[in-house]
């Protein structure tokens, strides 16, 4: 059941990316090109999503627990460490080079552009590398 619900929510998310224009790297790169062919559309994507989530999370988190039970898995950290600066700095460079962040990159798979097919395996490899490196550091610290 959770598989089907997630399938529907992933579909809604992906449809949102397409309708908003965020799935098109050209639009993303133009949003990021403040001093050139600036297209401010993506500020509206972020604005719409944040406003809905701001209100929606408040309603949802007033509940005791999620529908399927268990607990709400909310990030508890609020400190600003080196990783939460270095990671986004690296991510932003890649985003500016390719015009893809992880959601739009995945959603683009079925459209089969050569650039997407080069980007996606590299992205998955990078994600995996970061996880393994992070796990190693945790083990080294606790060993």
């Amino acid at each position: 059941m959770s598989f089907l619900v997630n399938l529907a929510l992933g579909f809604l998310f992906g449809a949102g990316l397409v309708i908003s224009g965020m799935a098109d790297p050209a639009k993303v790169l133009n949003f990021l090109d403040l001093f050139g062919t600036w297209d401010p559309s993506l500020a509206f994507v972020m604005g719409g999503a944040v406003i809905v989530a701001f209100v929606g999370y408040r309603l949802v988190l007033a509940r005791d627990k999620p529908i399927i039970g268990g607990t709400f898995h909310l990030p508890t950290r609020n400190d600003i460490d080196a990783r939460v600066i270095a990671g986004p700095a690296i991510f932003g460079i890649g985003w500016g080079l390719g015009g893809f962040c992880p959601g739009p990159a995945l959603s683009a798979l079925g459209l089969g552009a050569p650039g997407t097919l080069a980007f996606l395996p590299a992205m998955i490899l990078g994600m995996w590398g970061a996880r393994l490196l992070a796990d190693n550091r945790v083990q080294a610290r606790t060993a």
């Binding site: 929510l9 949102g16 297209d39 989530a53 898995h73």
Partner: peptide, 30 residues
Amino acid sequence: MTEFTPFASLAGGVMIGLSAVMLMLWEGRI
């Protein structure tokens, strides 16, 4: 150049936000 699409972009953003809210409602994840 890409066309400025404030309404479509806002609508798409609302859909992304709804997906995030419903994932939290369903199984409590970000």
